[in-house]
Design a protein around this nucleic acid. Structure first.
Lengths: 103, 103
DNA sequence: TTTATATATCAATATATCTTGATATATTAT
DNA sequence: ATAATATATCAAGATATATTGATATATAAA
């Protein structure tokens, strides 16, 4: 039950669904790209990324001072079906707007 | 987004997951059967059934003074995948304990 | 070593959701 | 018509979750 509710709880929030859809669409992005694209404060983004990662939807790859997030692969059938439903639900996401000052 | 979150929100609660699994396992049951099997007060059961029904997981059939709830059929692929995950998640449910005084 | 950038986490507040007990409505039996 | 049973809904309090602003840590550049 705990794992199920953790997975479901992660996508029970509009902000996280948008972020997940954004990463699924754009591939690997860093936190400041999301921050810049969504115009949200960094602590809010960071918190939601952690929840999505802990729920098994995202993985993170740290390189230099950046944390690159992407959809975990391979991903199990259930999480895949959630991602599919998000894609089919025609959810609006902003255009990718790179936010890093140096890279 | 609203429909997606409504569907997800319905199964983002341990009580509702158990009730849904219970109905999926036992077939058509009335509210007092659930009340009696789960030892929960009636208003709580009734509220959760409404949420599951409004989210497209359950249907209700009123006969006499009883309201019989069952899993909606046919059910779409996404809700089906959620039901499947609940079945696979080995969630504990009580035995069916009929609660109606007359029928 | 100092400064700027990137990210994570904490504490406080705001917001949403759940549980309970009371009440309302409907159906059936007496 | 009255009483019993079944179900739904509301208001109040309890609990959980989200947002913000502040702070901490780490990397890299100057």
């Amino acid at each position: 039950m705990d794992i199920f509710l953790n997975t479901i709880g992660a996508v029970n929030d509009a902000t996280r669904v948008e972020i997940l859809h954004f990463i699924n669409t754009n591939g690997e992005v860093c936190v400041c790209d999301i921050e810049n694209s969504f115009s949200m404060i960094q602590s809010r983004i960071s918190r939601h990324l952690k929840i999505l990662k802990d729920a098994g939807f995202l993985k993170v790859d740290r390189r230099g001072r950046w944390a690159y997030y992407s959809v975990r692969a391979p991903i199990d059938e259930f999480r895949q079906s959630i991602l599919k439903e998000i894609v089919c639900s025609d959810i609006k996401i902003p255009l990718l707007n790179k936010g890093c000052k140096n890279e």
